[in-house]
């Protein structure tokens, strides 16, 4: 018991911080059912029931944000998801340990950049005054400011995500590749299976579990497509293309002082996201995989 007293004492600061900044806000979702007034606070604000949600579902900007979110999520799933797997396979096939380490340290690096920095770099490459347009101008090819073109926005966002996170994404796949028993490859090769058949019948089945896990996470997070990335670029491309659910809460909740309205949008997103995670896990279990948690 005396031993436990100091152990408990050690846990106190972390738990206190979590209580104040994670658990209290959890109960703060009640503001979604109020007309929150910052002057009287959450205890004395008027209760309005589902009024905020009725307003939300009648708001075309909200549906626009939801549509953008799902569209961008879909584009990212198709274009981003396979890249870390392919990179991991390529990297794994390199024989030189030194080369492998070098490639890893370079491709992990952008993960540690802030979005502000990453977007500044993209702007200097693809923006109106960037390298691309310098080149186009000097060859009289007109100009194309990729950063402000709403039609290119989905591709721009996805290429930024690939640039920043695809390298980091390979870690899980490298770990899974390392667990595959190399004897299998030798046995298959002796039996006459070539490179591609070994990939198809040994490597990919070996990666199945982790691919399913990442897929479940991606589907579960379908309503989260990135936040700062959109916040930073919204003014440049306009809200038609760049408003997503997360930024909706910010722009139509906090920025305009409609706290309850924004909280309702946030709560809607959280509830749907939990359902998605649960559903994606069910799907994984149906395929006989663990997913995020076990059955």
């Amino acid at each position: 018991m005396r031993r436990d007293r100091s152990l408990l004492l050690m846990v106190v600061p972390a738990i206190l911080l979590l209580l104040v900044f994670n658990y209290v806000p959890l109960f703060g979702v009640v503001t979604a059912f109020q007309e929150y007034d910052p002057i009287v606070g959450v205890w004395h604000s008027d209760w309005v029931g589902l009024e905020q949600f009725q307003r939300l579902f009648a708001d075309s900007l909200f549906w626009e944000s939801l549509k953008n979110t799902l569209y961008l999520s879909f584009v990212q799933l198709i274009l981003f998801f396979p890249i870390p797997i392919a990179l991991a396979l390529l990297l794994n096939s390199l024989l030189s340990q030194r080369l492998r380490n070098f490639v890893q340290s370079v491709v992990y690096l952008p993960h540690f950049f802030s979005w502000v920095l990453a977007i500044a770099l993209f702007q200097q490459m693809l923006g109106g005054a960037g390298v691309l347009n310098q080149f186009l101008r000097s060859h009289d090819l007109g100009t194309w400011d990729v950063m402000t073109d709403p039609h290119a926005f989905a591709l721009l966002i996805t290429s930024q995500t690939i640039w920043k996170e695809a390298g980091w994404g390979i870690i899980v796949f490298l770990a899974a590749l390392a667990t595959i028993n190399t004897d299998l490859y030798e046995a298959a090769a002796v039996d006459g299976a070539g490179r591609w058949r070994r990939l198809r019948h040994i490597t990919l089945p070996g990666l199945r579990g982790v691919i399913m896990l990442m897929l479940v996470l991606r589907l579960g997070n379908a309503l989260t497509v990135g936040f700062e990335q959109f916040l930073i670029q919204r003014d440049a491309v306009g809200h038609d293309a760049a408003d997503v659910l997360d930024t909706f809460s910010f722009y139509y909740g906090i920025a305009t002082g409609n706290y309850s309205y924004g909280a309702a949008a946030g709560l809607f997103k959280s509830v749907i996201s939990l359902l998605l995670i649960w559903g994606a896990n069910k799907l994984a279990h149906t395929f006989g995989e663990d997913g995020l948690y076990r059955q």
Binding site: A14, I15, L18, V20, F21, N22, Y23, V24, P25, L26, F27, G28, V29, T31, Y36, P38, G41, V42, D246, S249, F250, G253, I254, Y259, G262, A263, G266, L267, K269, S270, L274, I277
Partner: peptide, 22 residues
Amino acid sequence: LLVVTMFVNGGLIPTFLVVTGL
């Protein structure tokens, strides 16, 4: 108590209200 915070959170606005409320 710790793990729960990885999966659910109050969201942007409730957190903002708590921090500014303090």
